[in-house]
């Protein structure tokens, strides 16, 4: 028997959407391990989100310390490792966000634990299915260490629903905090009212064929009309047309919205790896032979300069008629 320690990211007084996918996995793992889910919230301000977390987990532990104002793997990892031991966890899990990917392997090193990263499902107690080779194969791995660490691919787990009764919230001390000399300097973040790329129901992505960042404006109009998040190919992010955190793909963000637009994107395997799981894929590309048309449900062979303004007009018409 063992418990499942689920690290949950929060924003303000609520869990992030990404944390709910982790909790969905955590429940499944707790069943296999015959234990409970313990949701762990670490960081300055985490206590405020405890009540929200308690809607989803029977036990919630918050570690709220002003010294944890900024996330650092160096300070967080020993805390998570310690809590794993204190709570008799046989599974330590987080969503495969940039934080989860940075932190969990470091925690694993402190616990001498093996890691199954970016998993898509649980096959058995210590067996997990994870995409490899840019999503071109699914590998089942068995983790043979006493504690198992996992990061969960958000797009593969439906967000956990609220439980009938609220869980118990407790606080724990951060203990000694040693950042090993690492310091947070600043974050350059683009403020946006659009949904997060990994949470969005609709994603509009542009590629190299957009040519300039300025040209992305028309895609953003389309996105705003649909309440969509913006995405991009590596070529567009590398060229500085759009921020790097828009990159969708094997080595960027993995998305699976109900509707994905790939505009002026050729469909390299690395890009497909990040969006193949979308329910409906639309490709708009001037060259009919591009591989993107092989995964698209609907393809339009057309220049974006013509296609996108027309698409905006048609969608507006449709909305007006409803």
């Amino acid at each position: 028997m063992g418990n499942v320690l689920a690290l949950c990211e929060f924003h303000g007084d609520a869990l992030k959407q990404s944390a709910l996918s982790n909790l969905a996995f955590a429940r499944a793992a707790a069943k296999e391990h015959g234990g409970d889910v313990v949701a762990l919230l670490v960081g300055a301000g985490s206590a405020a989100a405890g009540a929200n977390a308690a809607k989803y987990a029977g036990k919630v532990v918050t570690i709220d310390d002003p010294k944890l104002e900024h996330y650092l793997a160096e300070t967080y990892a020993p805390i998570v490792a310690r809590l794993a031991k204190e709570h008799g966890a046989t599974v330590v899990t987080a969503t495969a966000t940039s934080l989860g990917k940075d932190l969990v392997p470091r925690v694993a090193a402190l616990l001498d634990a093996g890691v199954a990263s970016d998993i898509k499902s649980i096959a058995a107690k210590t067996q997990f299915v994870r995409p490899i080779l840019a999503g071109n194969a699914y590998s089942t791995v068995d983790i043979g260490t006493p504690i198992v660490c996992v990061t969960v691919r958000q797009s593969e787990f439906e967000p956990a629903a609220e439980l009938g009764a609220a869980g118990a919230v407790s606080t724990a001390a951060a203990g000694d905090i040693d950042s090993l000399g690492a310091t947070f300097v600043k974050i350059d973040a683009q403020k946006s009212d659009r949904p997060e790329l990994t949470d969005a129901k609709v994603v509009v992505s542009g590629g190299r064929g957009m040519k300039t960042g300025e040209n992305f404006k028309v895609l953003e109009q389309l996105a705003d009309l649909l309440g969509a998040a913006m995405g991009a190919s590596r070529a567009a992010t590398d060229a500085g047309m759009v921020p790097a955190d828009w990159q969708v793909g094997q080595t960027g963000k993995i998305v699976a919205p109900s509707l994905y637009f790939a505009v002026a994107i050729s469909g390299a395997i690395q890009h497909l790896a990040g969006m193949k799981g979308s329910k409906t894929i639309v490709a708009i590309n001037k060259n009919k032979d591009e591989p993107i048309f092989q995964v698209a449900d609907y393809g339009v062979v057309m220049e974006w300069e013509k296609a996108i303004p027309e698409l905006i007009t048609e969608i507006k018409k449709l909305k007006a008629a409803r």
Partner: peptide, 9 residues
């Protein structure tokens, strides 16, 4: 490169 942008550490 983090989810929300670029973090300097």
């Amino acid at each position: 490169e983090v989810d929300g942008g670029v973090e300097y550490k």
